[in-house]
Design a protein around this nucleic acid. Structure first.
Length: 432
RNA sequence: GCGGUAGUGGUGAAGUGGUUAACACACCGGAUUGUGGCUCCGGCACGCGUGGGUUCGACCCCCACCUACCGCCCCA
């Protein structure tokens, strides 16, 4: 094979694309109910937009950025996630202005890029559907965003889900906890895994997330973030939990949960699935949280924010594993069987007329014999065929056949052009 | 970035260091001239991921590269 798609990319063929667009349209329906409006921002941004916000030491910035210098020597990055670009646009277009109602609630869907080793459900170009809500600190908004995430997943037929919840507190909480964690981990430094030793000083919270069994044993004894929250942070988190209870949304507190991006604070959450798509292991399909301070980081006024991102490829893997088919197949209404050269132009006119009358119509373009055309009609799941040849042309009639019952009736050509529905119903009635 | 497995036609795949690369499905054509879903018959890889090498000779052995899948890292 001469040309192949770049590593870590996928061609989405018609069959899969139907499922994609079904997911997208379900998502849009849910967003409409929650009053989140779409934004479309560039797929590439200035490198700094991400390096500043995601954290200079985060893995995304240090090794997963798809970046390059363009012909104008600008340092460009294909967006690795959605939030930073949305925030940039929010600030640049002054959506924080007084004429914009708060909270400003928006959603996006589209491709993201990370330079990493592909695996199933993890591509270099992957897709996310995400939401962001700016300008309100209320825990009720955190809960709206979480409930939106759940509603979205429910709307595509997923119900066996787990909501993991944690808080990172505010800045002060985080500073205090960070120090406490370092104080706790340093005596154990020698026992830690190689990766965790490195993380200990760069980003100690990441040690909590280690998959290493020995690390986990050590971490089990570590202090909990929940004991270092300021009273404000505690209050926020308490209310989030209370509101979730009020909505009867079950959740599990996971005080070791962290985020790969540095801009999060307060509430963070993940929605996980134990679908057989991932071998029954709990895998995150949707992750988000609050990011107060991010808007300032990108040059806007002090503005709180909260949102989530959902991995579309992962979602589709689950739907596939659970045999959930969202789009119902559309049968072909009419296949026009044309016989002989003279009928060619008539076939062309008939399919055109049928389509204008609102029916789906198809015809042959390969000069197939009638038998072949009927086979094609059958394969396309055609409900009706219209046969037109020399005889029919002479009499200005066509043969209308119901492919289900094989009943056939001669119908005036003019009626096909003016009102196919009528012709069809006459045939249907005769059959009954 | 590291480790492991794999790579034969549209698809699922069998295959051996030595003339014509099984089989099945799909697809196309035919079985009396203009009518489908069944059956029967026929066709369908100038080629075995790419490039080197070993050999009298390689799809089958060796090396490199590419890609996919799995694990690690990390994450959606």
């Amino acid at each position: 094979m001469r040309y192949q798609r770049p590593k870590g990319t996928a061609d989405i063929l018609p069959k899969e694309a139907k499922q994609w667009s079904a997911v997208e349209s379900r998502a849009r329906e849910v967003f409409e109910k929650y009053r989140y409006q779409e934004m479309r921002t560039p797929m590439f941004e200035s490198f700094d937009v991400f390096s500043r916000t995601s954290g200079e030491t985060s893995d995304i910035v240090t090794k997963e950025m798809y970046d390059f210098y363009d012909k104008g020597d600008r340092h460009i990055t294909l967006r690795p996630e959605g939030t930073a670009g949305i925030v940039r646009a929010y600030v640049e277009n002054k959506l924080y202005g007084p004429e914009v109602q708060k909270p400003f609630k928006t959603f996006y869907m589209g491709p993201m890029f990370r330079y990493e080793r592909p695996q199933s459900g993890r591509l270099r170009q992957f897709h996310q559907i995400g939401v962001e809500a700016f300008g309100a600190d209320s825990p009720a908004l955190d809960v709206e965003v979480i409930s939106l995430a759940m509603a979205l997943l429910n709307s595509v037929g997923l119900h066996s889900l787990k909501l993991s919840l944690n808080t990172l507190g505010d800045n002060e909480s985080r500073q205090n906890y960070r120090q406490a964690l370092i104080d706790f981990l340093e005596p154990h430094e020698a026992e830690l895994s190689k990766d965790s030793k490195e993380r200990l000083h760069k980003n100690p919270l990441r040690v909590l997330d280690s998959k290493d069994a020995n690390d986990q044993k050590i971490v089990a004894e570590a202090p909990s973030i929940l004991d270092y929250l300021t009273s404000d942070a505690t209050k926020h988190f308490t209310l989030v939990k209370q509101y979730l209870d009020a909505l009867e949304i079950p959740y599990e507190i996971d005080s070791n949960m962290v985020r790969g991006l540095d801009y999060y604070n307060h509430t963070i959450f993940e929605v996980m699935s134990d679908s057989k798509a991932f071998g029954g292991k709990w895998t995150t399909v949707c992750a988000g949280g609050r990011y107060n301070g991010l808007v300032e980081q990108l040059g806007g006024p002090e503005t709180p924010g909260v949102g989530f991102g959902l991995g579309v490829e992962r979602l589709l893997l689950i739907l596939d594993a659970e045999d959930i088919e969202l789009s119902e197949q559309q049968d072909l209404d009419v296949y026009v069987v044309g016989i002989g050269e003279k009928a060619d132009i008539e076939s062309l006119k008939i399919v055109q007329a049928l389509r204008q009358q609102g029916f789906s119509a198809e015809r042959d373009y390969l000069n197939k014999k009638p038998k072949g055309q009927f086979k094609a009609a059958n394969k396309a799941n055609a409900n009706y065929t219209l046969t037109i040849g020399q005889e029919e042309l002479d009499q200005q009639k066509v043969n209308l056949k119901d492919m289900r019952t094989s009943q056939q009736e001669s119908v005036g050509l003019s009626q096909i052009y003016t009102d196919f529905a009528q012709a069809k119903s006459v045939l249907d009635e005769k059959e009954n």
